[in-house]
């Protein structure tokens, strides 16, 4: 995918409950965040697995953030925790392959507090910058 020089795409998979809820609250409160963030709403962060994350990274995303509900607050059962386990393994895999593990991470957000989502976005972008500095991205 051709991309403007210096422009970055951070794909945020946000769960329809707390994750997307927090992003909506951020919008209502007119909190600003980077235009690099591209959101895909998913039913639960537990639905996002290695296949979806790798598809994103292979098709132009520079990094991926998965944002789910707070601990013990998954609206299903424990999707956020399961997603964390898989992302943790993927991070280790990236390191073993000689790449940075900062391109992917899992966050949580609170639907009532827009700043939680904005904080997660900022952290994801900071991590991507670290990965670029280390020269560990897939690009």
């Amino acid at each position: 995918m051709s991309k403007e020089k210096g422009k970055r795409d951070v794909l945020a998979f946000m769960c329809a409950e707390c994750g997307q809820g927090a992003a909506v609250t951020a919008g209502v409160a007119r909190l600003g965040y980077s235009t690099s963030i591209k959101i895909i709403r998913v039913k639960c962060s537990g639905l996002v697995g290695p296949i979806q994350i790798m598809d994103a990274l292979k098709n132009g995303a520079d990094s991926v953030a998965v944002i789910g509900c707070c601990f013990q607050a998954c609206h299903f059962f424990n999707g956020n925790f399961l997603s964390m386990h898989r992302i943790k393994l993927m991070k280790k895999l990236f390191k073993e392959m000689g790449y940075s593990d900062q391109m992917i991470n899992h966050y949580t957000a609170r639907a009532a507090e827009g700043e939680t989502a904005v904080g997660d976005f900022e952290d994801a972008i900071e991590r991507l910058l670290v990965a670029e500095k280390e020269g560990g991205t897939f690009a």
Binding site: C70, N105, H106, E113, T116, V118, G119, D120
Partner: peptide
């Protein structure tokens, strides 16, 4: 803790 917004992360 993320330190930003006060939630947790991996």
């Amino acid at each position: 803790a993320t330190g930003k917004g006060g939630t947790d992360k991996l």
